[in-house]
């Protein structure tokens, strides 16, 4: 019964366990197939898939920029990005008779507002609104206050759209943070102080916000994929346990990790070609299938046949200044020192 023993010393890490069933169920309803992503409401309404993807990126980029202005933690931004992407799986960006679509920035601002509350990183409404106005006008120093017309427009939009967003999201507000899962994995293997590894994995996670990866994989898979990619990048090998590779201990399939990594790799390939420099990340891609799952990753490492990106983010180059690219850099910085 009551034992007098008091826990002393560092508790052994709890073994990874699957998230509670209710969470799995909720997450499941927001996972889609590649084909389904092409059936998103905006695409059904006539926006091309490429364009839709660009708008998503711009929306997430908006979240990241406002978030940085408000010094919000990356975890909150990633939750907002998840909300944003989920929202677009149920609502269109295009007006139809009887339906007035929200602008992607409006959705982004609202999901960010919601995420700050959900993740307990509240900011004053006023600060949030001001940051939105500045980012929307692309003028980070713009003088904005309650006299500004845009101020009220943004504020009202955020407040009035909130319940639409909540309803659309089915109140599925608990997004398991891939950052936390990844960090727990690092701790599990006792490598949380390996700064190179930690930063690399963290950066992969942050950059993946710009993709639709959250609609394809669970947070756990995304976390494992970033760790996998990070470990490969910095050449760290995580230990097997009872003869099982680490990802199995973490309840993840290698195939999913590979698919997720490839998706993340697309960002880098697309952006590096823009600068004309070879991306250091090029080696990231690997065939998803046909690989012996037992192969230690150090062996799979070298082969990175550059296949054309499956659903390439090819058009990220289109936006003149490389919206996407800028955001990546920023987010990476934001992250690393956190």
């Amino acid at each position: 019964m009551v034992s007098t023993a008091i826990d002393t010393g560092a508790p052994r890490p709890e073994r990874p366990r699957p998230p509670p069933p209710a969470v799995v169920e909720a997450e499941q309803q927001w996972l889609f197939t590649d084909e389904e992503l092409l059936q998103a409401p905006s695409i059904v309404d006539g926006i091309t898939p490429e364009e839709e993807r660009t708008l998503r990126r711009k929306g997430v980029n908006f979240i990241l920029q406002v978030g940085m202005m408000l010094k919000l933690p990356q975890t909150t931004l990633s939750t907002a990005a998840v909300f944003f992407n989920r929202f677009l799986m149920r609502n269109s960006l295009k007006n139809r008779p009887g339906y007035k679509a929200l602008h992607h920035y409006q959705i982004a601002a609202t999901t960010l507002f919601l995420a700050t509350k959900v993740e307990e990183n509240c900011r004053k409404m006023k600060e949030l609104v001001i940051a939105c106005v500045r980012v929307a006008l692309k003028d980070p120093n713009k003088l904005v206050d309650e006299q500004t017309k845009d101020f009220w427009k943004w504020r009202d939009t955020i407040l009035y759209s909130e319940d639409v967003v909540l309803e659309t999201l089915c109140f599925d507000l608990s997004v398991e943070s891939p950052y936390k899962i990844m960090y727990d994995m690092l701790k599990y293997y006792g490598v949380e102080h390996n700064k190179k590894l930690r930063n690399a994995a963290w950066a992969f996670l942050s950059d993946s916000c710009l993709t639709q990866i959250c609609l394809l994989f669970t947070s756990r898979t995304i976390a494992a994929a970033s760790l996998y990619a990070g470990a490969r990048l910095v050449e760290v090998e995580l230990p097997n346990e009872d003869g099982k590779p680490w990802w199995e201990v973490q309840l993840i399939k290698l195939r999913d990790i590979r698919r997720a990594c490839n998706l993340m790799a697309d960002i880098y390939e697309a952006s590096s070609s823009k600068d004309g420099e070879a991306s250091i990340y090029v080696g990231l891609r690997s065939p998803e299938d046909g690989i012996d799952f037992e192969t230690p990753m150090s062996l799979t490492n070298s082969q990175a046949p550059d296949q054309p990106p499956a659903n390439g983010n090819v058009n990220s180059n289109d936006n003149g200044n490389g919206n996407g690219h800028g955001a990546e850099e920023m987010s990476e910085e934001g992250e690393l020192d956190g």
């Binding site: 389904e36 092409l38 059936q39 409401p41």
Partner: peptide, 17 residues
């Protein structure tokens, strides 16, 4: 559905609200 066919939208039912 196959990606190639004209988009029909997502048919799943969402639960929770």
């Amino acid at each position: 559905t196959a990606a190639a066919t004209p988009p029909k939208g997502i048919t799943r039912r969402f639960h929770g609200c």
